[in-house]
Write a protein that binds this DNA or RNA. Structure first.
Lengths: 229, 229
DNA sequence: AATATGTTGTGACATTTGCCACAAAATATG
DNA sequence: CATATTTTGTGGCAAATGTCACAACATATT
């Protein structure tokens, strides 16, 4: 059904994970304290939905697999809002529910999700969890990184023309991906997905890439790009 | 210089503040622990800049006033990325610095900013700060709310046409603002700012509003809207 | 109250962008 | 390896959007 799965990342950054810096022994000690609930989901299965009517105070962490968040609006249109990879956090806590819109998180691969009560994470426990602090820090950094990604996405969409959007995205990718000796780098998603990300029509984007090539601004084949500006 | 200041909010939600749920006595006890640095800025003054070259591990909290975050890109174009009101958190930690872009936070009114070292907040202190947990929770919720706003902004920009963007924004506002008996509500920014927010041309937006009026979809004068769909 | 500055509202025109349709290439699947 | 599915690349045409210019209005400032 879906191809090119290994290219489906939206951005390329070193992500903080929920359990970074916490030893296995510490994790095992923390389990009785946090009482995490782990659930498995098959490919295509709905992980959770919310519509803003009841507040869900659980933090969901995607431990393995891939998932997406889609919005079903009042018109019946559905569109993808976010993509989740291993280590991502999600849940109602992180999405401002637009009234009467339905938010649906679906597994795009077989996935494992761990639910943790938000209050348990924030409140220091009676047992001496040395790594509780680390956990809070991780969670905080993860949320901050999420705002970073969204912030970047917005700054790309703020560009007026397709060309400017492309340049904004590609320049960031060039600096993030450390291009090879010839200056080539390969973006982490297909051109179709890129058009979605930039909120432009795919064929219009292709046309723009073409004219940028003839102008000598860049060079590319498929996902491989080389920027001259 | 700037008018209509009370309408300059982007969204309308009950925001968690940094010191919510913490008594004055507790705050005074916490001061020696956190060692916050408070600075005042005049209207128009630069609060801070960053470009991703050195990591600034401080959290900035806008205690009073108003500020904006702008990006200066490689072309020399400058555009507004975010607006900050009282209680907002900002700083390099929350913005993914696009390579060689310059990020500039400027005071739009006389403002007071409190800087706190991130590690001090996250790490439990030797003194018994009962409200340390509350503080962490506040900070976390604030960051989550930030992602909610960005997330909403993105979901608006994902709409293809000006009309869809308008409807998406206005429907949210209607539900957030509790319209009067006649169904009227007043959006919290000027129409010019709205056009910016929706990333469309202002006059094109006005044209669209006009044709929506003739179609009987909505009614409006200035910032006051009444939606029929 | 008078002035300056920004906001709202409108129209004509140019341009960009989206839409559609199709073929070739690349990538998964069995 | 053969097949199915998706991605990439291209062109013509229509529609949506941006640009420019201007007047009336609203809001701060003095």
């Amino acid at each position: 059904m879906t191809f090119a799965t290994k290219y489906d990342k939206l951005l390329y950054m070193e992500k903080r994970r929920f359990l970074d810096g916490i030893s296995m022994e510490a994790i095992e000690k923390m389990i009785p304290c946090f009482r995490p609930v782990s659930k498995r989901y098959a490919k295509g299965e709905t992980i959770l939905t919310y519509s803003g009517e009841e507040r869900n105070q659980h933090i969901a962490v995607l431990f393995s697999g891939r998932a997406k968040l889609e919005v079903l609006d009042i018109e019946g249109d559905i569109f993808r809002l976010e993509s989740y990879e291993e280590g991502d956090v999600f849940g109602e806590l992180f999405t401002l529910p637009i009234n009467s819109n339905e938010y649906i998180v679906t597994a795009e691969e077989a996935s494992r999700v761990v639910y943790i009560d938000y209050n348990h994470v924030i409140t220091p426990c009676e047992h001496v969890c040395t790594f509780h602090t680390q956990l809070i820090s991780n969670l905080f950094i993860m949320t901050a990184q999420k705002t970073q990604e969204l912030s970047f996405h917005l700054s790309v969409l703020h560009q007026h023309s397709i060309r400017e959007k492309l340049l904004c995205y590609l320049r960031f990718m060039r600096s993030a991906l450390k291009p090879d000796a010839k200056g080539n780098f390969e973006i982490p998603m297909t051109l179709s997905k890129l058009a979605d990300y930039l909120c432009v029509d795919r064929s219009a984007m292709m046309r723009e890439i073409k004219s940028m090539k003839t102008e000598g601004i860049l060079n590319s084949t498929q996902r491989r790009f080389c920027l001259y500006v």
